[in-house]
Each structure stands twice: as C-alpha cells, then as structure tokens.
Design a protein around this nucleic acid. Structure first.
Lengths: 73, 73
DNA sequence: TACTTTTTTATCATTTATGATAACCAATAC
DNA sequence: GTATTGGTTATCATAAATGATAAAAAAGTA
C-alpha cells in the first residue's frame, strides 16, 4: 500500500513516459484533452490526484486504454 | 470517446462485478477502504467521478491492480 | 410475520481537482 | 540581442469528490 502522494507521482511519471514516447509536447496533449497546460504540468509532476475522467481523456489522446495508462508499480 | 457519465457508470459496474465475484458486501469493502458505505454505493452506481487514489484503495482491497480494475469497455 | 443484513438515497460540510490567468525559467533559433 | 518553444510555478475561483450522518428501501432468513 503506497500512499497517495507516491501514487500521484507514479501516475504522473507514467503519463510523461507515454507522452514522450510519442513525442507529443505537454502543451499539445493538454490542449487535445482540454486541460490547461499549467494544470497538466502539475498533474505530470504528481501534484494532484486525478479523476478517472481526466485519466480517460489523456489515455484516449495517447491512443492507449485507461488500463494501459494505469500500469504503474 | 464516451462521456463522463458513461465512464462513471462503467467504472462503477466494474467495481461491483469484481466485488460480487469475491462475495464481499459493499459495506465491508467500503470499510476496508475507509470510504463511507453511502459514498461507496454512490460510486458503484456511477454517481461520482472517482480519483485514482480512491480507485487504488478499492483495487488493493479487491486484490487486483488498478490496471485490472480499470479494464472497462 | 418480524428480524437482520445489505444497499440506497438525501443532505450538508469540507476538502480538493480542475479551470483560469499570469508570470517566470530554460533552451533553441533567428 | 529577441523571438519562439516547451515547461514550470503561483494564485484564485469554481465545481465536484469525499466525509459524515440519518433515514429508508430491499433483500435475505428464521
């Protein structure tokens, strides 16, 4: 059982990894998801505890499933 | 791209399915996760857009990964 | 019948995710 | 130099997730 902050960090890193693998600038992905770039930055940095819908939008725009996006450890 | 409400319904049903497969009463699982039973009911019914940490706690107490919990369609 | 267990629903307070805006930092290019 | 690009940080408002409590409805059981 990791704590909330650790989970947020892992999720943020996972998103960043997938995004960079596809060479998509943060602000571009944020725009596609209708998320402010500043808020997206905060999210990737593990600064928030995103909702499933936020993760879903990101997953869709990264062309992966939510299940794939949440493969953390 | 499904909408937010549809996503919530799918997630709720997924949780309920896994919980029932393990024969765990809703209130028991809620208690393990430190979530109010009333709020847990609302969540399973698709009434809220849960955060990843909420889903993580549920996944842990269902002995599945978050990735497994979020296998929706 | 009642009794218990499980789930649902409603409501209000509190916390927090997100929206929104602005300013800033670090590269890179012209 | 100064634009431009990509990212960060701070702040405030707003919407919504969650906490918390109570009551009622369903479902099961003797």
């Amino acid at each position: 059982m990791i704590d909330k902050k650790q989970l947020q960090l892992l999720v943020g890193k996972r998103i960043k990894l997938l995004r960079e693998q596809k060479n998509i600038p943060q602000q571009d992905l944020a725009a596609k998801c209708n998320i402010e770039k500043s808020n997206f930055s905060r999210l990737e940095a593990g600064g928030t505890n995103p909702t499933i819908y936020t993760l879903y939008k990101i997953a869709e725009n990264l062309d992966v499933s939510v299940s794939e996006l949440t493969k953390i450890d």
